[in-house]
Structures are given as structure tokens and as C-alpha cells.
Amino acid sequence: MSAGSEGGGATAVRTPPFGTSQRIRSRAIWAVSLFTAAIPPAVVGLGIATATDDQANVAMPLALFFWVLGFLFALWAAVPTLRYWEALPGQTRWLGALPLLSVSLFISLALLVPLVR
């Protein structure tokens, strides 16, 4: 039995490496920016698809590209946030977690709306 095991199974809080909070903030801001950049092409693409018979447009793939890139940045921010959750300040915790939470909320709403109709 080691000397440090008398603590009742409690684990020590790992301190994040230097600059982790700044990287999390930067990635979360990029994720939100990319999600926002996906909105105008999605609106334009939806307008083209519903107003004309031409279903092939470049706006929808562009919107999907921005959204997927934003999702990757949200994951990239969420992984270190969850890894060092206890050691991070509260503002950094939520800033790192909210982009991924908003994506999961959006997907949940997209799945529930057809069921309600």
C-alpha cells in the first residue's frame, strides 16, 4: 500500500499546462465564429432551393463546411476543458463547453421538430 492511498480514494486536481485557458478561449471563439459564418450561406441556399427548380447550389455545401469546421473547433475546445475541468476558472469552463452544448442542442431540436409536427 502506498503512502498516498489513505485519502479515501480522492484524486488530486491536475493543474493544466501553461496557456491552456487561452487555447480553450481561442478555440471556443473560433467555433462560435464558424457557426455564425454558416448561417448566411444556409439561408441563401435554402432560399435558392425553395424558390427555383435548380437544387444544385454552392451555398449549402459552404454552410455545411463552416458548420463542420466549427464543430471540430468546438470538440477541440471541449476536450481540454473536460480534462482540466476542476482546475479551470468558471468562465473558461463554460466558454469551452458551450459551443459543443449548443451543437448538441441544435441537433436535438432538429431531431425533435419532425416528431412534433
Rank of each mutant, 00 (worst) to 15 (best):
E6Q: 08
E6I: 11
E6W: 06
E6A: 13
G7W: 06
G7H: 13
G8V: 08
G9Y: 04
G9I: 05
A10Q: 13
T11R: 15
T11M: 15
A12G: 02
V13E: 14
V13C: 10
R14G: 09
R14H: 14
R14E: 15
T15F: 09
P16Y: 09
P16Q: 13
P17H: 10
F18S: 15
F18K: 14
Q22R: 07
R23A: 06
R23V: 00
I24S: 00
R25S: 05
R25P: 04
S26E: 00
S26H: 01
R27V: 00
R27L: 11
R27W: 03
A28Q: 05
I29M: 07
W30P: 02
W30V: 01
A31W: 00
F35M: 11
F35E: 05
T36Q: 03
T36L: 14
A37N: 04
A37F: 07
A38G: 14
A38H: 05
I39H: 05
I39P: 05
I39N: 09
I39G: 09
P40D: 09
P40K: 09
P40F: 09
P41L: 10
A42E: 03
G45H: 07
L46A: 13
G47S: 12
I48F: 09
A49S: 12
T50M: 13
T52D: 07
T52E: 07
T52I: 03
T52V: 04
A56P: 04
A56D: 09
N57L: 07
V58P: 03
V58N: 10
A59P: 01
M60E: 10
